[in-house]
Amino acid sequence: MRFRGKLVEIGCIHHFTRVIGTVSKLIKQCVLRITPANWYFILSEKLVNGGVQIWCDLPQGHFFDEYAMEGVCQEANEIYLELAPENLVKALKTAQNAKWIKIKLTKKNTPYLTVEVDLPTLSAHSRTVVHDIPVYVVPRRLWPEYEEPKLPDFDVSIVMPQLKLLRNIVDKMKNLSNYVALSANQNGEMKLMVETDMVSVSTHFRDLLNPAVNRGDDSEEPDPEVFSEARIDIRKLAQFLVGQQINYTRVICNIVHRRVVHFLLLHDDVSLQYFMPVVAS
């Protein structure tokens, strides 16, 4: 098992930091899956712990200048590591004006992801900072737990309004209730609603886009006016909105009525998927 990669472009370093920063705001501990083509950050919570699933993929060619890896064996050329993304962010924070960053998988009694940062100097001597991030190598028999979540057949697919505005609203609603009902239809309308003994508040967004949904031939087109609804934990939603550090080109919200909300965030080649199951009322 080997891995080494090198980032040189400063723009790539910054973008890489922002992506991992976003991931670290969402999860404390996650699995990093390294394949010849991609880096994946994966969280798959057990249903009893809330059942949130996160799937973030980064095409390595977008970030790394040099990239070499060797998986556990020939037929499974992949590496699965468990780590705290926050540690990676801390290491990258020191690299905001670095000449280059090398990321390696090393073994010093226990396995580490070693981040080597070369900082600019005025003299001839180089200045290198090395961070060792402890990782846990996930054995191959556990890999099936971290498969890409299957996309269910969504009832509604809608482009989200500006995240900043949404964040303000959800932040206020968070003070009123623990749950929010998120609903949308195929007519470009989205609704956020909280209800308590004291107050009911609902915010309506109109004129949003509905991306085309690929449906099986057997299912008929639903009524565009009908809202599909999901009642979710408002704190999780707020946390998800606060953590975003990337300017996405598109944020799509998919809803399976009373089952699950799926957020798909796209930026160039990077994509982040966030599955939030509903909370029973």
Partner: peptide, 11 residues
Amino acid sequence: EDGVLTDCNIK
């Protein structure tokens, strides 16, 4: 605000 509407019913 900006085309976004919020209804509130406060007891």
